[in-house]
Simulated scan of single mutants.
Amino acid sequence: MKVFLWHVHGSWTTAFVHGPHEYLIPTLPDRSPDGLGRARTYTWPESAIEVSPQEAAAADVDVVILQRPQELHHLAEEWLGGRRPGRDLPAVYVEHNAPQGSINDMRHCVADRRNILLVHVTHFNALFWDAGSTPVRVIEHGIVDPGYLYVGELGRVAVVINEARRRWRVTGTDLLGFFRKVAPLDLFGIDAESLGGRDLPQEKLHREMARRRVYLHPFRWTSLGLSLIEAMHLGMPVVALATTEVPEAVPRGAGVVSNDPVVLEEGLRRLLAEPEEARAAGLVARRAARERYGLERFLADWEEVLVEVAG
Rank of each mutant, 00 (worst) to 15 (best):
V94Y: 02
R169F: 09
G142F: 10
V307E: 15
E296P: 05
V3Q: 01
R269W: 02
I103S: 09
E203N: 03
L205Q: 03
L299P: 14
R137E: 13
F188C: 05
V160W: 00
N162C: 09
G172I: 11
I143Y: 00
G235H: 05
I25F: 11
F178I: 06
S102I: 13
G294P: 03
L89V: 13
G311M: 03
A98V: 15
D145M: 00
W6V: 11
V238T: 04
F124N: 04
T171A: 09
V246D: 12
G35T: 08
E296C: 03
E296I: 09
R198K: 10
E203H: 02
L216K: 08
T122R: 13
E265D: 04
P135N: 14
I139E: 05
R180Y: 01
A280N: 11
S32N: 13
N162Q: 11
L89Q: 13
G177M: 10
F219C: 14
P247F: 13
D112Q: 07
A192T: 07
H141A: 03
S52R: 08
L272H: 08
A249G: 10
T243R: 12
L241C: 08
G35V: 15
V309R: 10
P26T: 15
V110L: 10
A39F: 14
R167W: 06
P90F: 02
A48M: 09
E203G: 05
W221T: 14
A278Y: 02
P261N: 06
W129N: 02
A48T: 05
T27I: 15
D145H: 00
M232R: 02
L226I: 07
G282R: 03
V284K: 08
E78D: 12
L205S: 03
A281V: 03
M236I: 00
P146G: 00
